[in-house]
């Protein structure tokens, strides 16, 4: 492996890191703006033109706030919780192909930090570590509300991870690969997986909402019952890390949804007109980002439309509806593949 390749990967990793942070930062702004627009308001518009400096103001506020560590808390775990949440949130971006592989003569550079052949499994693995950040934070706070929130978060994430994994199995059966890059490159033109696996796609999106703790599944931080949920005791930038990790998760989830089901960087006909290798990468990245941003918008749109589930409804939906549905979907996919002689 030559050194330029390694340096290139380092730069790419830094770019993905920066991109995740930047998108998450502006997600907070757009969350408030979209919430306002959906409620006939204007939203933040004081810091800079149209309020675009609002995230900076929020960040400064977060850093300047007093940092409180409860005297009864477990000091190290209290710090470890948000760090873990942030770490796992940032790790997931590594396996997502942000643009088509850059091929120019002999030069070959995949625009994906790590093209591992078990990319899908890696995603699930890292996402399931993510719940530990919340659990540890809630436990270390030594507060009943925090513990309840952490309890809810972990049971919710474990329940929905099952349905999520099962919905992906149908997809993996069809595509025959666990590599995210290959799944993306198979969906050339209109061959988006959502057209072949609509049910798996729907289940995956619903589970993604639950995994990221977003409304209507935001029970872990349900204000009406649990004050602030698992981050009740957190203040200053430690709280900021939790909130920020949620937005990064949202961004990565959107990227994963668009990669697995909505063609990733593929868009019909576009590569007939763009042939220059540099512009292919740029257009591919633009297509990928616009799909991702659409799903971020969908996340917010749903949040400001639907009320929160009750806890028993949440469990009912997860175990009695989504898991059977995804199993049925696997069986249907198998029958379909058998009938079309794919196995």
């Amino acid at each position: 492996m030559e050194s330029s390749f390694i340096i290139g990967k380092f730069i790419l990793a830094a770019c993905v890191f920066g991109l995740s942070l930047f998108v998450a930062m502006y997600s907070t702004y757009f969350e408030r703006k979209i919430a306002a627009f959906l409620q006939d308001r204007l939203g933040p518009n004081r810091a800079g033109p149209f309020g675009i400096l609002q995230p900076l103001a929020d960040g400064v506020k977060m850093f300047m706030k007093e940092e409180i560590t409860p005297i009864v808390s477990n000091k190290w775990l209290f710090i470890f919780g948000p760090s873990l949440a942030m770490l796992t949130a940032l790790m997931t971006g590594a396996v997502i192909p942000w643009a088509p592989t850059y091929v120019n003569g002999d030069t070959y550079f995949p625009l994906q930090v790590a093209d591992i052949n078990i990319g899908v499994l890696y995603l699930f693995g890292v996402v399931s570590i993510g719940v530990y950040g919340i659990m540890i934070g809630g436990w270390a706070s030594n507060n009943k509300y925090s513990l309840m929130g952490a309890l809810r978060a972990s049971s919710q994430m474990i329940s929905y991870e099952l349905a999520m994994g099962l919905s992906i199995i149908a997809l993996v059966m069809m595509t025959g690969t666990l590599s995210v890059r290959e799944i993306a490159s198979q969906q050339i033109g209109w061959h988006w997986n959502v057209l072949y696996q609509p049910l798996a796609c729907l289940i995956f999106i619903i589970c993604a909402f639950a995994e990221t703790n977003r409304a209507p599944f935001d029970l872990p931080e349900c204000e009406t019952e649990l004050v602030g949920g698992y981050h009740t005791e957190y203040s200053s930038m430690k709280l900021g890390f939790y909130l920020f990790a949620e937005y990064i998760n949202m961004f990565i989830s959107s990227a994963v949804i668009s990669t697995l089901f909505f063609g990733g960087y593929n868009f019909p006909l576009i590569y007939n007109y763009v042939t220059d290798p540099f512009w292919v990468s740029v257009v591919g990245f633009a297509v990928m980002m616009s799909k991702t941003l659409f799903f971020i918008f969908l996340f917010m749109w749903v949040r400001w439309t639907l009320p929160r589930f009750r806890y028993d409804q949440l469990m009912h939906l997860g175990w009695k509806v989504l898991i059977p549905l995804s199993i049925i979907n696997i069986v249907l996919t198998g029958i379909g593949m058998w009938l079309t002689d794919k196995i």
Partner: peptide, 21 residues
């Protein structure tokens, strides 16, 4: 019902805002 609700909210997205600066 969810789609109907989302249709209602998106109509509000484009509506004239009630806020006075």
């Amino acid at each position: 019902a969810i789609l109907a609700g989302m249709w209602i909210t998106i109509k509000h997205f484009l509506r004239k805002k009630a806020t006075i600066n």
